[in-house]
Amino acid sequence: MTSLAPIPAAAAEFAPETTYLNTSSWGLLPRRTIAAVKALADENAAGRRIGAGSFDAVEAARTGFARLVRVHPDRVATGASVTVHVGLIAASLPSGAEVLCPEGEFSSVVSPFALRGDLRMRYAPLDGLAAAVRPTTALVAFSAVQSADGRVADLAAVRAAAAAHGARTLLDATQAAGWLPVDAGAYDYTVTGGFKFLLCPRGTSFLTVTEEAQETLPRLFAGWVSAGPPWAGNYGPLEHRAPTARGFDEPPAFLSYHGAERSLALLAEVGADTLHAHATGLAARLRAGLTGLGRAVVPGESAIVSVPGLAGREPALAEAGIAVSAPVGNLRISCHLYNTEADIDRVLEFLA
């Protein structure tokens, strides 16, 4: 079995008090991120910060995310939650439009469409999603990596099927961006929560939109930041929104974005290829070990390992200081840059 050396930056930035293998629920905050949030909070408390935060930090986070998912920053809108981004996309569809999603997809990806009540919802198994696209499909909305069990979608096949039938694509990269290479430019829309594998504070999320798809989105959430330049649209109705994806920005949670700037800089320093190899290598070690113990695992090359039917072991693992999660009956173990072979071996020893 290939030996994986720890990532040097992880030792300098993280000191978890548990064996932390639960990034699919939330990512640990780096020391630099915590320092940035604390510094801004202190300035707010002392009255030293005009405007409660810096738009420069928001722009740095936007640029850092854009670099990670391989698009220009003008294609990225910043916000606070995936649900709001998806809701904006759901509002853009005409009544009766057909939306195709995987069975068991995460609620935030599905609910804004399903609860409208006037859209035609269809569901298909993840491995049959591409085959389920048809000429009547208006939008395929799906996650790159499934939250429930870590399965990775056949991204190329879904894109090809959507293109062949003229359907738009919405990709949720929340469980992927940060360890799985994502090309956001290949989709009409992507949404990504920042507080998992991007290691950002809660209150950060990113929407990417192609130039063509920007024209389809309604101006429902237009506010003072939608004008583009900070402080340019504070009073009265806007004469126009920013001509880029910035026109879909939400007013920023400055504490979160001051931290996000630092977290995304750390990921850039580590490098996407290094992080992908590290996380998937640890997951492969875990799958091999679990198989050796006679445990059936969800197959694949994801950084998220799921063991069906073993959710009942999560409380005992937590009591032993091993942080994992247990959605829909699965024991879910997620690997990231701060994890080591020792973490994997400790889980295997416990489950043995």
Rank of each mutant, 00 (worst) to 15 (best):
residue 96 G to Y: 10
residue 94 P to G: 02
residue 76 V to Q: 04
residue 87 G to P: 03
residue 112 P to V: 00
residue 101 C to S: 13
residue 107 S to T: 14
residue 108 S to R: 12
residue 78 T to Y: 09
residue 99 V to G: 01
residue 97 A to F: 10
residue 80 A to C: 08
residue 112 P to Y: 06
residue 64 G to N: 02
residue 113 F to M: 03
residue 109 V to T: 06
residue 105 E to A: 13
residue 102 P to N: 09
residue 103 E to G: 12
residue 77 A to S: 10
residue 89 I to N: 03
residue 66 A to L: 10
residue 90 A to Q: 06
residue 114 A to M: 12
residue 89 I to E: 01
residue 71 V to M: 03
residue 77 A to V: 05
residue 103 E to L: 15
residue 82 V to Q: 11
residue 87 G to A: 05
residue 111 S to M: 14
residue 94 P to M: 04
residue 66 A to Y: 07
residue 86 V to R: 07
residue 101 C to H: 15
residue 102 P to D: 10
residue 99 V to M: 07
residue 102 P to Q: 09
residue 104 G to F: 11
residue 97 A to G: 08
residue 80 A to S: 12
residue 69 V to N: 04
residue 80 A to H: 09
residue 78 T to H: 08
residue 89 I to D: 06
residue 85 H to D: 05
residue 83 T to I: 11
residue 79 G to A: 04
residue 81 S to F: 13
residue 77 A to T: 03
residue 105 E to M: 09
residue 108 S to H: 13
residue 104 G to D: 11
residue 75 R to K: 14
residue 107 S to G: 14
residue 68 L to D: 07
residue 97 A to V: 06
residue 66 A to R: 07
residue 74 D to I: 04
residue 111 S to I: 11
residue 106 F to R: 11
residue 73 P to F: 08
residue 108 S to W: 11
residue 103 E to P: 09
residue 110 V to L: 14
residue 73 P to T: 11
residue 78 T to P: 01
residue 113 F to I: 02
residue 78 T to I: 12
residue 65 F to K: 01
residue 113 F to R: 03
residue 88 L to S: 08
residue 86 V to N: 02
residue 84 V to A: 14
residue 96 G to S: 11
residue 99 V to W: 03
residue 105 E to I: 09
residue 106 F to L: 12
residue 108 S to A: 15
residue 111 S to H: 12
residue 91 A to D: 07
residue 114 A to V: 10
residue 73 P to W: 10
residue 98 E to N: 07
residue 84 V to L: 15
residue 98 E to I: 01
residue 107 S to L: 15
residue 95 S to E: 14
residue 71 V to T: 00
residue 80 A to D: 05
residue 113 F to G: 00
residue 113 F to P: 03
residue 105 E to W: 06
residue 70 R to N: 12
residue 111 S to E: 14
residue 78 T to W: 00
residue 112 P to G: 06
residue 107 S to K: 13
residue 109 V to M: 09
residue 95 S to F: 02
residue 111 S to T: 15
residue 64 G to Y: 03
residue 88 L to K: 08
residue 106 F to Q: 09
residue 87 G to W: 01
residue 97 A to K: 08
residue 99 V to K: 01
residue 95 S to C: 12
residue 70 R to H: 13
residue 81 S to N: 15
residue 77 A to N: 01
residue 97 A to P: 01
residue 85 H to R: 05
residue 85 H to V: 04
residue 108 S to E: 13
residue 111 S to Q: 15
residue 84 V to D: 12
residue 88 L to E: 11
residue 83 T to E: 11
residue 74 D to V: 07
residue 87 G to M: 05
residue 82 V to T: 14
residue 111 S to F: 12
residue 101 C to F: 12
residue 69 V to F: 07
residue 66 A to T: 01
residue 68 L to A: 08
residue 101 C to R: 07
residue 89 I to R: 04
residue 78 T to V: 15
residue 111 S to V: 13
residue 112 P to K: 05
residue 78 T to S: 08
residue 88 L to W: 07
residue 68 L to M: 09
residue 75 R to F: 09
residue 106 F to W: 14
residue 79 G to D: 01
residue 99 V to S: 07
residue 85 H to N: 07
residue 67 R to Q: 15
residue 64 G to R: 04
residue 109 V to D: 01
residue 105 E to H: 00
residue 81 S to T: 13
residue 98 E to Y: 00
residue 73 P to Q: 08
residue 86 V to P: 00
residue 103 E to D: 14
residue 80 A to G: 11
residue 67 R to L: 10
residue 80 A to Q: 13
residue 101 C to D: 04
residue 79 G to Y: 00
residue 96 G to A: 13
residue 114 A to G: 04
residue 78 T to D: 07
residue 66 A to N: 06
residue 78 T to C: 13
